[in-house]
Design a protein around this nucleic acid. Structure first.
Lengths: 165, 165
DNA sequence: AAATTGTGCAGAATATTATACTGTGTTGGT
DNA sequence: ACCAACACAGTATAATATTCTGCACAATTT
């Protein structure tokens, strides 16, 4: 009798990335607007497989987004603050409310749930110290259930990349 | 007698961004590969001024980079660690050595000089805890002049964007 | 007020690129 | 040996970027 085919037998769509894929990703991470022709020359393939590989990686979700990065200072967001936050109450409901508040605050560029003394870490970007004070007093501290808040100021950017491979 | 023209009289090239520019940046931040035609339809201009404005913002440095962002987990960088570091010695030379070391470590995605107890904050991304342990013991701790190191683990990503305007 | 200059724009023309199509060589399995 | 699947090169076509031309308006000069 033939063995029954069950879900577990199907391949997991584990689209493993080979060296060509990684070379393409390397170039794309540095410049999302590089042409397929340029890539194909640098990775020693014709445009066809390069195009196919990119589409495959877009579909599989390896490529998450083509983004445009702006100069912090030139868009008046020159001050970066790392902000630690703890909540008074840790119910599910209180957590969801805080999460929603984070999505709504444009100054909050990143927010992570973290281990340790505090509950969350925020990366906040604004124009200057005055703007940050305003954010702190009028926005962050106004969120209900807000506990302790601790600010660490970024004095210099040593390294900042998004290249993972 | 005519007043002498000195540097201070020349305009500062303050290319201020109007609402159309901001609308274009808004779209580009979300998708660096959006076509000029699509932008022109959404901001109610023809392709010519949209193209000109983009080129202007590229030249002025407002647009810093077109980047491709990858899925952390799918490229096996699913563990994010916030890492605080203090140096033993704070001479200029010691600082430069540390900075150079940061540039060389591919696991270090971001590194900031910060106010407070520690000297630097690092965002480190690697495959798993095992990889992080290896990074900590064999790479970070091997840097000369390394003082205290404290790791905070990211348990969840609440918000993560790069949109500044 | 008339002329001039610069700026921002629309529309068309051209150059470049993305995308789809066709066929070939290679590999692994039967 | 045969077949199927795959990755690829080369070519054709569709879409897009980029350049060019000229117009309308506002500010400045004469």
């Amino acid at each position: 009798m033939a063995k029954a085919i069950v879900k577990e037998d199907l391949p997991v769509e584990e689209s493993t990335l080979d060296n060509k894929d990684l070379a393409i990703l390397h170039l794309l991470q540095k410049n999302a607007r590089i042409t397929v022709k340029e890539i194909s020359e640098q990775v020693h393939l014709s445009t066809t497989p390069v195009h196919e590989r990119i589409k495959r990686m877009e579909a599989s979700g390896v490529i998450k987004q083509y983004a445009t990065l702006l100069d912090h200072n030139k868009v008046k967001k020159g001050l970066m603050v790392i902000c630690y936050v703890s909540l008074k109450e840790h119910s599910k409901k209180a957590g969801v409310k805080f999460i929603d508040a984070m999505q709504a605050l444009s100054e909050v560029i990143e927010c992570y749930s973290i281990s340790g003394e505090f509950d969350f870490m925020l990366k906040v970007m604004c124009e200057d110290m005055n703007a940050y004070y305003n954010f702190h007093v009028n926005k962050l501290s106004q969120i209900e259930n807000m506990g302790k808040v601790q600010s660490t100021f970024v004095m210099g950017i040593i390294k900042q990349t998004h290249e993972l491979v």
